[in-house]
Design a protein around this nucleic acid. Structure first.
Length: 336
DNA sequence: CGCCTTTGACCAGCGC
DNA sequence: GCGCTGGTCAAAGGCG
C-alpha cells in the first residue's frame, strides 16, 4: 500500500478517515491519550485513522488489567480518494455516514469469499486488474482483553495474518463464515498497550448471528444487530457486553486522566472466543459502574425507539450517523 | 469429514 | 519503475 518512507502515521491517508467513537472508562481515557486519540491535531488524527494498526510504536501498556473496557471507532471505508490533509474536517465533510453508504455497496471485493459469485473470482487468485478495492464502512473497537479474538456472536474464519509495521503484534484477518456474508474483521493488539485489542469490522452481516458463544444461546436477531450500527452493520455490538461499554472521554481533564484505576470490585472479564464460556459469565455490575453508565446516558430508556437500541446505549442518537472527534468533544462537553 | 488455522506467496496501491 | 506495506488467496496441516 504505502511505499512512503515517512512513518506511516505521518503520511497523508489514502483510506477514508476514521471516525472514532470510544467506549470505556476513565482508565481507558488515558489509554486513548497514549494512542494519541485524545484530540490530536487533525493531521495526526487523519493519518492514524485509516490504519489502526499504525496506532504507533510505543511504550508499554498502561495496565495489565485484562478487562472488558471497550473503545469503538468508526472507520468509514469507501476506497478511493483519501481525505485531504487535515483529516478530521475533511473526513466529516467528504465521507457519507455509514448508515447511508453502507447499505447499498455492492459486495466489496472481486476476491470476496462471501456474496460474490465465483465467476468474479479469478481462478488464479488474482484480483481482476483495474478492479479497485472498495472499502465498506468499518467500525473499530478497542477492547481491553487478554484474548485477541473477541466473541461477537458471529462465526469467523481466519484467512490471513500479517505483521504490521510499527507493531510487534501481527494483525489477523477474519471473514464471516456465512458464505453469503462479506463481513470481515481485523484483529490486532495495540502496540502501545498490549492489553488492548483493536477489532475492526468491515461490511454488513446479511444473516442472523449464531449467538454466542459459538452455538450457544442468545441468538441475536438482525434487528438487534441493526440497532447497534445501523442496518445490519457488522458489529453485533459485542453481545458479551450486555452492559454496553462506557463512552470514553477523548479530551479528559487532568483530573480525569489521573483518576484512580477502576476499582478492584470490577472483575476483569476476558472476552474470548476461545474461552467462550467466559462471555456468558457476565458478572453483575457494581452499583458504582451502573450509576456511572446511567449518568453517561448509556442506559436504554423505555421511551426510546427501538432504533436507539444498543448503539443508543453507547452513543447519543445525534452521533449515530456522524461521529468524529469534534462530535466527541461536543459530547464530552455535553456530558460535562 | 468438515471446519479451522497457519503460512508463504502474490497483488494492489501508494509515494518517491 | 521501484520499494514498501496492507490485504488476500489457497495449499497444507491440525483438530474434534
Amino acid at each position: 500500500m504505502d511505499g512512503d518512507k515517512r512513518p506511516r502515521d505521518q503520511r497523508p491517508h489514502a483510506d477514508p478517515p476514521p471516525e472514532f467513537f470510544f467506549f470505556g472508562d476513565d482508565q481507558d481515557s488515558s489509554i486513548l491519550s497514549e494512542f494519541g486519540w485524545s484530540l490530536p491535531e487533525p493531521a495526526s488524527l487523519a493519518s492514524r485513522s485509516g490504519e489502526l494498526g499504525s496506532v504507533g510504536a510505543g511504550s508499554a501498556g498502561t495496565s495489565a488489567e485484562p478487562a472488558e473496557t471497550t473503545t469503538t471507532a468508526e472507520v468509514e471505508g469507501a476506497g478511493g480518494g483519501g481525505p485531504p490533509a487535515g483529516g478530521l474536517e475533511a473526513s466529516t465533510s467528504n465521507y457519507p455516514a455509514v448508515s447511508s453508504d453502507s447499505s447499498e455497496d455492492p459486495a466489496e471485493k472481486s476476491t470476496g469469499s462471501g456474496g460474490n459469485p465465483p465467476a468474479e473470482t479469478p481462478s488464479n487468485k488474482v484480483r481482476k486488474k483495474g478492479q479497485k478495492r472498495i472499502r465498506q464502512p468499518r467500525f473499530a473497537f478497542m477492547t481491553k482483553s487478554d484474548v485477541d479474538h473477541l466473541e461477537d456472536g458471529y462465526r469467523w474464519r481466519k484467512y490471513g495474518q500479517k505483521a504490521v509495521k510499527n507493531s510487534p503484534f501481527p494483525r489477523s484477518y477474519y471473514r464471516c463464515t456465512n458464505s453469503k456474508c462479506t463481513v470481515k474483521k481485523r484483529v490486532e493488539r495495540s502496540s502501545e498497550d498490549p492489553t488492548v485489542v483493536i477489532t475492526t469490522y468491515e461490511g454488513q452481516h446479511c444473516h442472523h448471528s449464531v449467538g454466542f458463544p459459538r452455538g450457544g444461546s442468545g441468538v441475536l436477531t438482525p434487528n438487534e444487530n441493526a440497532t447497534a450500527f445501523g442496518p445490519q452493520l457488522a458489529p453485533p455490538l459485542f453481545p458479551q457486553l450486555y452492559h454496553p461499554p462506557r463512552v470514553l472521554n477523548l479530551n479528559p481533564s487532568p483530573r480525569e486522566i489521573n483518576s484512580p484505576p477502576r476499582p478492584p470490585n470490577l472483575p476483569p472479564r476476558p472476552l474470548a472466543t476461545s474461552s467462550g464460556s467466559d462471555s456468558q459469565q457476565l458478572p453483575p455490575h457494581s452499583s458504582e459502574e451502573f450509576q456511572a453508565q446511567q449518568q453517561l446516558g448509556r442506559s436504554n430508556p423505555p421511551d426510546l425507539p427501538t432504533d436507539e437500541g444498543l448503539l443508543g446505549d453507547m452513543v447519543p442518537s445525534g452521533m449515530r450517523h456522524r461521529l468524529d472527534k469534534r462530535t466527541l468533544i461536543s459530547w464530552n462537553s455535553f456530558q460535562g
